Amino acid sequence: MRDFMGMMKQAAQLQSKMQEMQAELDMIEVEGVAGAGLVLVKLSAKGDLKHVRIDNSLMKESEKEVLEDLLIAAHADARRKAETVLAEKMKAMTGGLPLPPGLLG
């Protein structure tokens, strides 16, 4: 019974740490760039889009498709960085123990 109570205490501590980490991830921002800096997007480490900056040279009708592609590329770049931050935070919090996918929900 002691082992069970100890496991429950550890689970509660882990849940508390997870909530703290979720709040921290909202505050961390990563930048993604594309087109040698012509397009920049900022995401929270949780992946929420926070900001988009587009160079004026792309604001031409003839550049519409290029701009669309660069926005996608910049978002993908930022998303990869956000996933890296999340993985580093999880590794630090769990001591490298693998957790099931979707645990951060």
Rank of each mutant, 00 (worst) to 15 (best):
K89P: 05
A92Y: 06
L40A: 07
A12R: 13
L71I: 12
E24G: 14
E29M: 08
E61G: 02
L99D: 11
G35F: 01
P101M: 11
V41D: 02
R80P: 00
K42C: 09
E88K: 13
K89I: 07
L71S: 01
E68D: 11
M1E: 06
V39R: 00
K17R: 03
L25V: 10
E29I: 05
M5W: 14
K50W: 00
G95A: 14
A76E: 14
I72Q: 08
L67Y: 02
G32V: 02
V30M: 05
A12W: 09
A12M: 12
A82F: 08
S16G: 10
V39H: 00
K9C: 00
L38Y: 00
G32L: 02
K91P: 05
L70M: 13
G95W: 13
L103K: 02
A92N: 13
D55Y: 09
E63K: 12
L86Q: 13
E63V: 06
E83D: 15
L99Y: 11
E65Y: 01
V33E: 05
A12T: 10
H51V: 03
N56D: 13
D69C: 04
V85H: 07
G6K: 12
E61N: 04
L43A: 07
M5S: 08
A36S: 12
R80M: 09
Q15L: 00
M1I: 01
D26Q: 08
D55F: 06
L103N: 03
A34E: 02
V33C: 07
A92E: 14
H75P: 00
K17N: 05
Q10E: 14
L25N: 09
H75A: 08
G96N: 10
V66S: 06
L58K: 01
I28W: 00
A11W: 12
A36C: 03
M8A: 12
A78L: 11
G32P: 00
